[in-house]
């Protein structure tokens, strides 16, 4: 059994394994199994639909962290062309978690910024498990300010378990790096579209998450703290992560109902990792539509609307 299947994906995986086996048998022998295979295929789709139609919060959390989940660069290479990566915060180092650069989006120059997780163990370590340090946030801000100067729209892709909780990060003022981004992003005179593609956890996510539009993929999450962190503080036990995920309302549908996000982007049946190309195509279409709306506004109006949008959160 493939280790990259989540527990609730197992029945689907088992069925798919059976179909694969039948296909192999079918080519080896004279037997005509096409009808049988088609039946099982349909059954597999129905099963997937039924399982994915009622995921719990904790299951969505697992999807957002799925080992096969597409990461920022997977989308960047499919949605944008002519991507030139730029490096460095100009003070301390490059920052290996946040990637950014200038690219073209439907031929239009844009700034792309994303939090990148690693796939293999080596990459995971190199990408610090997706946990940005101050230099990551400062690099992102530098690139966003560059985009502002040349009137280039900004796309950010959020996918982080949180800002890095380490000694060196504190020494270089993690708090200030995050706060400065929130402060500056609120007034940047260029459109900003933020998309949560996987995990959106705490200030580390928000630090590239202040924009004119905040979008979420169907099986992504957004929360003030990871469910495990919340559980260990409020329940005094990380085992209560499931309850914490439910209580915090981490899923896109709950956040949309609260008016905190603008749009939920549907994923292919079974999740984005099942068909990265299709997911990228959907995402690209949504981004294009949202950008067009934002670019039809004057910059003054855009920035004022962004401010009012922030002020409206929790307004009495």
């Amino acid at each position: 059994m493939n280790m990259t299947h989540l527990d609730f994906e197992k029945p689907i995986a088992e069925l798919e394994a059976k179909i694969d086996e039948l296909r192999r048998v079918g080519t080896d022998t004279e037997l005509n199994l096409i009808e049988e295979i088609d039946k099982l295929d349909a059954k597999s789709r129905e099963l997937t639909k039924s399982i994915f139609s009622s995921l719990t919060s904790q299951q969505v959390v697992k999807m957002a962290r799925h080992p096969l989940r597409p990461y920022a660069l997977d989308y960047i290479e499919r949605i944008f062309t002519d991507f030139d990566e730029l490096h460095g915060d100009r003070h301390f180092s490059n920052g290996a978690v946040i990637v950014g650069g200038i690219a073209r989006f439907n031929n239009q120059p844009v700034m792309v910024i994303g939090q990148q997780k690693g796939r293999t163990t080596k990459e995971k370590v190199q990408r610090n498990f997706g946990m940005p340090r101050p230099e990551d946030f400062r690099k992102a801000l530098r690139l966003m300010q560059l985009a502002e100067r040349f009137q280039i729209p900004i796309f950010t892709f959020i996918d982080t378990p949180g800002a890095y909780p380490g000694i060196d990060a504190e020494e270089r003022n993690q708090s200030e790096a995050i706060a400065r981004n929130l402060f500056e992003m609120s007034t940047l005179r260029t459109p900003i579209i933020c998309t949560v593609i996987g995990e959106g956890s705490s200030g580390g996510a928000l630090a590239i998450g202040v924009g004119d539009r905040v979008l979420m993929l169907q099986y992504s999450i957004y929360a003030v703290i990871s469910p495990e962190g919340c559980a260990s503080i409020l329940w005094k036990s990380a085992d209560k992560a499931e309850e914490a995920a439910e209580a915090m309302g981490v899923t896109p549908d709950r956040l949309f109902k609260l008016g905190l996000i603008d749009e939920i982007i549907p994923e292919p049946l079974g999740g984005a990792h099942r068909d990265i190309d299709a997911m990228s195509e959907t995402l690209k279409t949504v981004l294009a539509r949202q950008l067009k709306q934002l670019q039809s506004m004057s910059i003054d109006k855009l920035v004022e609307q962004r401010y009012q949008r922030l002020m409206a959160i929790g307004k009495r």
């Binding site: 706060a179 705490s202 919340c230 309302g249 922030l310 959160i313």
Partner: peptide, 26 residues
């Protein structure tokens, strides 16, 4: 820090307060 019991609503108070301070600064 941000109050966990209001999750993303309290998280976004970080950007709300920072944005207001940007206006104060301006």
């Amino acid at each position: 820090g941000a109050r966990m019991q209001e999750s993303v609503i309290s998280l976004m108070q970080m950007s709300k307060t920072s944005a207001a301070l940007a206006r104060l600064s301006a």
